[in-house]
């Protein structure tokens, strides 16, 4: 168990969060806490507000009402630049469609996250290569995203998310665009990460992914948390 998990401190704290897009309400008074070292999965039907929740926690979007506090930062009080710095230091994001930069090879895609913080290129590339090695794709370090398989792309995406040693790893349907074998590999990877203490929040439709990777299931419907419970699997 990691030091963070031992301490059991609250890493993510949402209090009465509401998000409106014009007339539509995406989040309706969500109150939720995630502790350091925890692996939680948010489940629910399409359009229920799962991705909006993830965006709020990542500081990619702002709530209409309520507060979002992550790693002690009240995100509603931060400006655009401060939010960018917050994401660099505390958040790693894994996307369903990988969102790699087409024009950069795998190694530079991963190193980029560190280089934006001012880490020298040599140091950033060395760490990126280590991560790619740990995730089993070091051999494709010079390949462009378009020439990688889906599983390989997602591993590169995970490596990029881990590059700055984030306190919180957010995964939006991480296996949604993968075949079953690649999906399995990514699930194992996430479990491994959580086992070494990485706090994890997964948004998914996939019950198997949720139960295998997460210790807690959060059920979402119509922008509200409608149920929570221990998942237990994978722990």
């Amino acid at each position: 168990m990691s030091e963070a998990e031992k301490s059991g401190q609250v890493l993510v704290d949402l209090a009465g969060v509401r998000k409106e897009y014009g007339q539509a309400v995406a989040l309706d008074g969500v109150t939720l806490q995630i502790r350091a070292g925890e692996a939680a999965a948010v489940m629910g039907p399409s359009g229920c507000g799962k991705s909006t929740l993830l965006n709020m926690i990542a500081g990619l979007d702002r709530p209409t009402a309520g507060t979002v506090t992550v790693a002690g930062h009240d995100l509603g009080r931060l400006g655009e630049s401060a939010l960018a710095l917050f994401r660099r230091r505390h958040i790693g994001m894994i996307f369903q469609f990988f969102n790699l930069i087409d024009d950069l090879p795998a190694l530079d895609n991963v190193a980029l996250a560190a280089q934006l913080t001012g880490t020298p290129a040599r140091t950033a590339r060395a760490r990126a290569l280590d991560l790619l090695g740990e995730l089993g794709v070091a051999g494709r370090k010079d390949a462009y995203p378009a020439t990688l398989s889906g599983g390989q792309r997602q591993r590169v995406g995970v490596a990029r998310a881990l590059m700055n040693r984030p306190a919180l790893l957010l995964a939006d349907e991480p296996t949604g665009a993968l075949d079953s074998r690649s999906g399995e590999q990514v699930m194992d990877l996430l479990i491994d990460l959580n086992q070494i203490g990485q706090t994890l929040l997964i948004v998914t439709h996939d019950l198997e992914l949720a139960t295998r990777c997460a210790g807690r299931l959060i059920e979402f419907a119509d922008g509200q948390v409608v149920g929570q419970g221990a998942a237990g699997a994978g722990r």
Partner: peptide, 8 residues
């Protein structure tokens, strides 16, 4: 994507 990984 670049903004999501911390580009200001």
């Amino acid at each position: 994507v670049l903004k999501s990984i911390g580009m200001t």
